[in-house]
Simulated scan of single mutants.
Amino acid sequence: MNWKRYIVSFLIAMGATCGVHAQHQMVIDNRGKTVDVMIPAADGTMVGYVDVDYSDAKFYNSGMQMGFNSTPSSSIADADNGMEVIDRKMRNLSNVMMLTCNEEVKRYIDRYTKAGRQSTCYLLGRARYYNPFFEKALRSYGLPLELKYLPVIESGLNPNATSRVGAAGLWQFMTTTGKQYDLQIDSYIDERRDPEKSSYAAARMLSDLYNRFGDWTLALAAYNCGPGRVSNAIAKAGGGADFWAVYQYLPKETRGYVPAFIAASYVMNYYGDYDITPLSTGLPNSCDTIIVEKDVTLARVAGVLGMNVDDLKVLNPQYRQGFIRAFASNGAAKLRLPSEMIEKFRCYKDQIYQNDTATEDPDMTIAAANTSQQEALH
């Protein structure tokens, strides 16, 4: 998936292909603190906005003990982080995937821990919410949990991220590929943006790629640029056991993709060595899903439950028009809510469904029609 990761800023030095230009993202955390988030690519170009994932409590708490500093402490960030030390630590991260450090990988590590450290703090904060989706899907296919770092370089953990060429969601599926992996995409719903369903689709795709190439670094390269290009690179190299063996024959942007992934894996585990602390975000600590029995708008649900409708949309980004069709073609629709709101929804469901499906918002209908026309053009 050659288009996907550029929209994220966090890890990709391949910003030229994606076309996402430098931008600042203002973020307000749970405590009302405003943070200006921006991250540079490894080549020094500033590219867009990002996020990070990791749900392990040990990981999250170890950094919290240190406190946030906008600049690294020289005694921490510069000590014992030479190439050899990093390589040794990196090899301990996985028994399945070959993660090694070289100059290319080190360039990314430096960007994430120096110029982009503030964005890294924000990304780490969002990890607690999104990682369980990734881990559950990866486990279901028996895949390495280290692959949970892929959405970091694909979308910056932004389910609404959309690339210049139309790739969307946390895992950056194109429309055709998403439908190939059974994601529903129409005027009302785009399951590429659904954290749960897109994660299962991505796990299935990654499993297919690994079964084809027999090496995770090659599978990751194929996720970026497509299996055909990786096969061509292997042929030009006269055979290749891994990404590094065919490196020079891959597209330029793909040469940075695997190093970016390796660097993300390292930083997400050893961020505390650089005096980096996860930043609190507005995402809930836990969520659950409930089956929607009748057509309803997110605005109606939010109004009855006393929630902010924008917060509800953040948890349910797959509903393009803010409208849930109860009986979609892929089965019953689900609504994701903060865990404490599940019982309240059940108690007030009659009020939630009352008169909300009699008529649709005309603006919503027009928007849906426009979306259909735009999709037809593509």
Rank of each mutant, 00 (worst) to 15 (best):
I28L: 11
D29H: 09
D29T: 05
D29M: 11
D29F: 11
D29W: 09
N30P: 02
N30C: 15
R31Q: 08
R31K: 14
K33A: 09
K33V: 15
K33L: 12
K33G: 10
K33H: 14
T34Y: 12
T34L: 12
V35L: 10
V35C: 05
V35P: 03
D36I: 08
D36Y: 07
V37E: 11
V37P: 05
V37C: 06
V37F: 05
M38A: 07
I39D: 06
I39V: 11
I39L: 09
I39Y: 09
I39A: 10
P40T: 09
P40K: 13
A41M: 12
A41V: 13
A41R: 10
A41T: 12
A41S: 15
A41E: 15
A42M: 10
A42K: 12
A42T: 07
A42L: 08
D43G: 13
D43E: 10
G44Q: 13
G44V: 08
T45M: 11
M46S: 06
M46I: 13
M46Y: 06
M46Q: 14
M46W: 14
V47Q: 12
V47R: 09
G48D: 10
Y49E: 06
Y49V: 13
Y49Q: 08
V50M: 05
V50W: 08
D51V: 04
D51C: 14
D51A: 14
V52G: 12
V52W: 14
V52P: 01
V52F: 15
D53L: 13
D53E: 13
Y54R: 12
Y54E: 14
S55L: 05
S55W: 04
S55T: 07
S55G: 15
S55I: 05
D56N: 07
A57Y: 03
A57G: 01
K58Y: 06
K58L: 10
K58T: 12
K58F: 10
F59R: 05
F59P: 03
F59G: 07
Y60T: 03
Y60K: 06
Y60P: 00
N61S: 03
N61I: 00
N61Q: 02
N61H: 04
N61M: 01
N61Y: 06
S62I: 03
S62G: 00
S62C: 02
S62T: 03
G63R: 05
G63W: 01
G63I: 03
M64G: 00
M64F: 03
Q65T: 02
Q65P: 00
Q65G: 02
Q65V: 04
Q65C: 01
Q65N: 03
M66I: 06
M66Q: 01
M66L: 03
G67K: 02
F68P: 00
F68N: 00
F68A: 00
N69L: 01
N69V: 01
N69T: 02
N69Q: 02
N69K: 04
S70G: 01
S70K: 01
T71F: 08
P72R: 01
P72H: 00
